[in-house]
């Protein structure tokens, strides 16, 4: 296991019901935008109202034609990088952290990938599932359309299959990292088989959520208290859903 980076902070835990993709992305941005100002770390778990394709920030909208199975799914462009994800039978998280420094350079971004994914390994081992961290970038897969068909350093693998990957957005002196744990396969992305098929164990979402939260709490030294968005964050989230993530202009911007 890697070294623990103890942040010694209190944190908020937000657990959301299934919502539209545009709302999910708007809430993540709303939290990030005030993370530095509020000096608060927020762990959020969420789900998707219907199977939704999310595109990486720099992905071309037209590239979705190469993935036939998800053609009828709604689509939202993320703020974060990486490849497309078909969100269906999964548990999604975001972790928003005030950055230690601003701008183009330094922060603790790469260790956040590792710590959150190591926490997932801790949590999964409690269910008898022994996943592992991908130690090296596997070249030649960068151009795959789906994130889960790529292999980056620190991805979570089970039996050679990627079951969890994360991506980040850095803005407003904060880092927002979000990622997905694939529980079961989806008809809209049958290439990705998920934890249940690989391990033969069906994980219940709320149980994994609890175990993962506790592992993050222990590994990062954060005491989480369940919370809801502040009024300002809720205002921002509604504005961002309507004016950004719910618009064709944003989702098809490139």
């Amino acid at each position: 296991m890697g070294s623990k980076s103890n942040l010694r902070m209190d944190g908020r835990l937000i657990i959301d019901r299934p919502q539209e993709g545009s709302r999910n992305m708007a809430v993540d941005e709303a939290i990030m935008m005030r993370a530095f100002e509020l000096n608060v770390l927020t762990l959020r778990f969420y789900q998707w109202q219907q199977p939704t394709l999310s595109l990486g920030y720099f992905q071309n909208y037209r590239s979705r034609v190469q993935h036939a199975e998800s053609q009828s799914c709604s689509v939202v462009r993320r703020n974060s990088g990486g490849g497309a994800i078909l969100h269906d039978d999964e548990l999604t998280y975001s972790l928003s952290v005030p950055a230690t420094t601003s701008g183009s350079g330094t922060d603790r971004s790469s260790s956040l990938y590792q710590e959150v994914h190591l926490s997932l390994l801790d949590a999964l081992s409690g269910f008898g599932i022994q996943a592992e961290i991908n130690p090296t970038h596997q070249p030649g897969l960068e151009s795959e359309f789906l994130c889960f068909q790529r292999r980056a350093v620190n991805d979570v693998l089970l039996g050679g299959h990627k079951i969890c990957g994360s991506a980040q957005r850095k803005k407003n002196q904060a880092i927002s990292q979000h990622g997905s744990l694939v529980l079961g396969s989806s008809a809209a992305a049958p290439q990705i088989i998920g934890t249940e098929v690989i391990s033969g164990i069906r994980l219940e979402r709320m149980e994994v959520l609890k175990g993962w939260k506790e592992a993050i709490s222990s590994r990062l030294g954060i005491h989480f208290q369940e919370a809801e968005l502040t009024d300002c964050e809720e205002f921002d989230a509604q504005r961002l859903q309507k004016g950004k993530f719910g618009t064709v202009k944003w989702n098809q911007r490139r």
Binding site: V153, Q168, K170
Partner: peptide, 16 residues
């Protein structure tokens, strides 16, 4: 203020 953006290791960062 932000004038551009870069992506590295799945992280999108602002350029100021």
């Amino acid at each position: 203020s932000e004038f551009g953006e870069v992506e590295s290791v799945k992280a999108v960062s602002s350029l100021y």
